[in-house]
Amino acid sequence: MKPAPFNYAKPSSVDEAIALLGGDATLLAGGQSLVATLNMRLSAPDLLVDINGIGELSGISVDGGTVRIGALTRHRELERSEVIAAQAPLIAEAVPLIAHPAIRNRGTIGGSIAFADPAAELPACLLALDGAVEIAGSGGRRKVSAGEFFRGLYDTALEEGELITAIEVPVAAGNQRFAVEEVARRHGDYGMAGVMASVTVNGAAVEAARLVYLAAGGTPMLAEGAGAALAGNAIDEASIGAAQSALQDDLDPFDDMNSTAATKLHLARVMTERALKRIAGA
C-alpha cells in the first residue's frame, strides 16, 4: 500500500492553486478519501496540489441570511462551531455521524462535497438546506446550487481546473425544523440509509419539506414526492405513510455489500418515520 510516485505542490493562494490544476493534477484537502485511494493505487495522479496552506479557504462566517463555510473547514470545526449549532443545526446534528474523531479532525467540507459520495452526510445536508457551492476557476468564481451541483455517481458540476472555495447555506429560519436519522452497521460507518430532513412549518401544518436521503441513489436524493405528500398537512400517521409510499418513486437505491436496494428502501422509510415524528414532537 505505497502510492505510485507523484509530484507535489503546496500553493498559498487560490489563484496559484488554479494555475497548477489542469493536466493530471488532483487536489489534496483533508486527504481522508484521496490518500486511501492513492495508497491502494486506485488513483495515481502526476501532481498533488495540496491546498492546506491556503488560509482564505478556512473559516465559518454569517453574512446576512447566509452561512458561509470555507472549503477547507474541518468537520471537527463544524462540530464545535457555535455558529453552526445556532444557524445551521442540521449540519451540527449530522457531523458527529461522519466517521470518527481522527477523520473529522482532517476531513474538510469542500473535500466531502467535491467527492460527492452518495452515502456521505454533508452532500445530503447541503441539498436538504438548498445551499450552494462557490467554485473558483481560471475564469473567476461562480456559484452553483446544490440541486445542480450533484449530477451523478461521483459526478459534480466541478469542471477540470476548478476548486471549491466555499459552501453556503441559508441561516435557519424560526419556522424550520430539522432532523437527521441514519442507520449504520457501526458507529462511524457510512450509513446503510439516512435522511436529512428540513421541514418548514406553518403552525401545525407543513409548509414545505425537503427530505434528502443518503445511500439511496447515485447522488444525495431529494424526495420530491415525499415532500409534496407532506406539504399542507400535519405530520401524522397518514402523511408519514404517504411520504413513505412516495419514496418508491423518489429514491433509486442500488444493491451493495451490506444490503439490497429493497432493504435500503425499507430502511429509508423507517428513517423517514423517525425523523418526522421527532420533528412533530419538537
Binding site: N258, T263, H266
Partner: peptide, 11 residues
C-alpha cells in the same frame, strides 16, 4: 441487519 429484517419478513 438485512438478515434480521429478512427473518422478520421486512425485506
Amino acid at each position: 441487519p438485512e438478515r434480521v429484517l429478512r427473518a422478520l419478513g421486512k425485506t
